[in-house]
Design a protein around this nucleic acid. Structure first.
Lengths: 122, 122
DNA sequence: TCCTTGATTCGACGGTTGTCGATATGGCCG
DNA sequence: CGGCCATATCGACAACCGTCGAATCAAGGA
C-alpha cells in the first residue's frame, strides 16, 4: 500500500525544476511532466482533499476523516486520492485498519515557485 | 514597449486572496473557482504557450510567434489561447493584423501563493 | 473461523476535452 | 474593389474523466 511501489513522477525534482516559467520557455518534456501535476489539481474535490489533508492536525488524515465533508461516494474519494498520489502530491500509508494520507511539501513548493512572477521589473 | 502600458500591479496581489491552502480547508466555491485555473494549466501545450508568452520580449507575443514551436494546428493553438484567456491567465488585444497576448501576473501570483508550503513545517 | 468495518478496485455510463479540416471574420494593401 | 494574410469559429470524432453501485481485499475482534 505504501507509496514506494508507485512510479511517482515528482520524486526528486532534479532536472525539471523550478525557475519561474515566466523567465524562459518551458521545455517540452518538462511541460508534459508539470501538466500532470496541474491536472491533479484541476478538480474541486481534489483541491479540497489536498487542503483538508494538509490542514488536518499532525499534517495527515485518514480516509475516514475525508469522506464526510463531500457529497460524492467513498469510492470516488478513493479514486481522487489515488490521482493525487500518482501525481506525487501526497503520500500514503496503511496503519492497522486505517489508511493515512499526507501532503508532500516539495511538490507544492515546486509548482509554487514555477508560477512565481518575477517580482519587480521585467 | 508594451510593459509600460501594463499596470504594474504587484503591490496588491498578496491582498487579493489566498493564504496557502495548507493552512485551512478550502471553501467549496473557492475550490471550484481555483480548479478552473488549474485546469487551464493542465495541458502541456498551454503550459508552454503561457511560458512562451511571458518570456517573450516585451512580455507579450502575437499568435504568429506562437504557432511555430508546436506540432499542433493553428486552430488548436487558437483554442488553447482561448482557454487561457477565459481562465483569466492571459489578456489579449488586436493591433492591426495581429493579435497579441500577455500574461496577467496577478493570476499566477494568486496560484503561487496558494500552493506555498508553510516554510519550516514538518 | 466468521463477521464487521475501512478502503480499494472493477465495470459501466454520460459528459468533457484535444485535435483536426473546413469555413468564416477582420484588416492591410495593390 | 479584390485578393491575401492572420485568427477565430464550427462541426465532428476519438479519447479521457468523474461518478456511481457492486464486488473485492485487508485487518481486527467475537
Amino acid at each position: 500500500m505504501s507509496n514506494l511501489e508507485l512510479p511517482v513522477l515528482g520524486r526528486d525534482d532534479a532536472a525539471v525544476c523550478c525557475s519561474p516559467m515566466v523567465r524562459e520557455p518551458l521545455g517540452e518534456e518538462a511541460a508534459v511532466d508539470l501538466a500532470k501535476m496541474f491536472k491533479a489539481l484541476s478538480d474541486p474535490v481534489r483541491l479540497r482533499l489536498l487542503s483538508l489533508i494538509a490542514s488536518h492536525e499532525g499534517g495527515e488524515a485518514c480516509v475516514c476523516d475525508l469522506t464526510g465533508p463531500f457529497d460524492v461516494s467513498q469510492p470516488t474519494i478513493s479514486h481522487h486520492l489515488k490521482v493525487l498520489r500518482e501525481a506525487g502530491l501526497v503520500g500514503s500509508e496503511r496503519r492497522g485498519t486505517w489508511v493515512y494520507y499526507w501532503v508532500l511539501p516539495g511538490a507544492l513548493a515546486r509548482l509554487s515557485s514555477l508560477l512565481e512572477a518575477p517580482a519587480g521589473a521585467r
